[in-house]
Design a protein around this nucleic acid. Structure first.
Lengths: 171, 171
DNA sequence: AATGAAATGATTGGTTT
DNA sequence: AAACCAATCATTTCATT
């Protein structure tokens, strides 16, 4: 039972609305889904406690912060052993240019999403923070032309819904 | 002057705090940065209007929503022409599995971040929504072992700060 | 940019279904 | 057990300095 959460249509509706605007008031939420504001609070509190809602984030425009160029770096870390990749991950996460980091299957071990001021800043980053490190065997740089958020994130459509209107999901 | 924003230390402090928790109250914000709550409201309103703050987002746990497997798909779209890539982008953005989409330089035209229920769901997605499409020349699938958010996103350190304490940034 | 008052929203406890 | 209502409390917002 640890990682499983039951979500009814009200929960899903609330999540969907909050994904559009996380600051929607409980009053507005209540009006949209047709329950009382206090019930909405209840639901959201439960969703936070159950770990479905991880947090409330501010989305910023990197360009407006002077980081007008973004890129994805595909990185091979060799040898790929815990005592090397642990410090590597922590070092990359601490860089002010890093936005996100993925540990992957496939020929490239990591993908790093970075935001920089321009190409010279990117060159500096690659040379000083990546290829200069002994454990970094290879870096491939892909510039980002454009990016889109998708969503909202919803549970998968279940082929055969059970008798109740509930969707049971599992970690 | 269009895309440029001036940020003083108070703005930076506020942004940093809100990136930790976007629901921090103006009262708490004020206490931390040492100005009045109304001033914080002023600052945040200006930051939203100037486009530095794009929005307030809810961060959800895909695993808790029944999407316990995530992957990055590297996709070639050929021929790479506007009349093909426009519909492709819209189609991918509309998939419930899509979390983010990037248009890139390099051998792969697009990178798609997806969240699925498991490997069979991923196989279905790749076969039915990607390789089945005429314009998709190639798909490479990389599973995500683990991922990290980095941050907070801050303006680049300026080598030689001007007389004032302000950081002028540009899009 | 601060103050303080007015408006709005969040939260709680008791009650009902 | 979950939802509602109404009262309380906190926060946001605005006019003013």
């Amino acid at each position: 039972m640890d990682g499983s959460v039951a979500l009814d249509p009200v929960d899903l509706r609330i999540l969907s609305l909050l994904q559009n605007d996380a600051r929607t008031t409980y009053r507005d939420l209540a009006a949209e889904v047709g329950v009382a504001p206090s019930t909405c609070l209840d639901r959201v509190t439960r969703l936070r406690r159950s770990g479905v809602i991880l947090g409330h984030e501010l989305r910023l425009d990197p360009g407006k912060l002077g980081r007008g160029l973004e890129a994805l770096l595909l990185v091979q870390v060799r040898p790929h052993r815990r005592e090397l990749i642990g410090p590597f991950v922590e070092r990359i996460r601490a860089l002010p240019e890093s936005r996100a980091l993925f540990h992957l299957t496939g020929p490239d071990d990591y993908l790093v999403h970075v935001a920089v001021t321009g190409t010279s800043d990117l060159q500096r980053l690659v040379l000083d923070e990546f290829t200069a490190q002994r454990e970094v065997a290879r870096v491939e740089t892909r510039l980002i032309f454009q990016q889109w958020e998708c969503g909202p994130l919803l549970p998968p459509r279940t082929g055969a819904p059970s008798g109740s209107g509930q969707v049971r999901t599992q970690t």
